[in-house]
């Protein structure tokens, strides 16, 4: 797949930056002219991925989150959210709806379920002790009937 455009960002794992990541992805994907519904769903997926890094990967420690946004052929938006945190010991379990390892923080255990339902494809790679990367793609349709 050709990369038609690419922006890379890195920011510290502060919860304040969840809104920053959403704003960045909204601005970047504007060039694909998404509908209001599409951008709402993409923003939500990115918010979940970044929140996971803060709540789970770094758990109150400091560290950086890397956000890579690409435009690929055929109006496909590619997003990668990467951390160098603790890693996920059991990816299958972590992706199960309603499973959470942080109930005391009132996490609903729906982060990955939201990402999977709002994006076309979600791939999680993780290694304990070295971090996690979440890659998501979504084809932006030019049909604006849903706005």
């Amino acid at each position: 797949m050709n990369i038609l455009n690419e922006v890379k960002m890195s920011f510290p794992c502060k919860s304040r930056n969840e809104a920053l990541a959403r704003t960045a992805v909204t601005a970047f994907s504007a060039q694909l002219d998404p509908s209001v519904n599409e951008i709402g769903e993409i923003k939500t997926a990115v918010s979940e991925a970044v929140t996971n890094c803060i709540v789970h990967a770094y758990r109150g420690r400091t560290g950086n989150i890397e956000l890579v946004m690409r435009i690929l052929d055929n109006n496909v938006l590619y997003i990668k959210v990467r951390d160098r945190g603790c890693g996920i010991p059991d990816i299958k379990q972590a992706m199960e709806p309603l499973y959470t390892s942080a109930p005391e923080e009132e996490r609903a255990g729906l982060g990955f379920a939201v990402m999977e339902s709002f994006m076309d494809k979600v791939t999680v790679r993780s290694k304990e002790g070295s971090g996690t990367s979440v890659t998501m793609t979504r084809k932006i349709l030019s049909d604006k009937a849903d706005t």
Partner: peptide, 8 residues
């Protein structure tokens, strides 16, 4: 805007 934090 609301993500799953609103569900929690």
């Amino acid at each position: 805007f609301m993500d799953s934090s609103g569900i929690g």
